[in-house]
């Protein structure tokens, strides 16, 4: 087996900080979107959305 040589980019402190900031923002936005879809589904479809009673 031959060793595979990977070339990488080492992030600077500023790049790491920016990436962290973007990751947190994406996590918050995704979390809020999931909550929004969940709540609005219940509102639009009623309790049947949870029990499957509407089927």
């Amino acid at each position: 087996m031959t060793a595979v040589e990977l070339k990488t980019v080492k992030p600077t402190e500023a790049q790491k900080k920016a990436q962290r900031s973007r990751s947190i923002a994406i996590a918050v936005a995704l979390g809020l979107f999931v909550i929004l879809v969940y709540v609005i589904s219940i509102v639009r479809l009623g309790p049947a959305a949870l029990s499957g009673g509407g089927m």
Binding site: M1, A3, V4, E5, L6, K7, T8, V9, K10
Partner: peptide
């Protein structure tokens, strides 16, 4: 032996 040898891309 290391499978991956990391080098820096400048």
């Amino acid at each position: 032996m290391a499978l991956v040898d990391e080098t820096q891309l400048e």
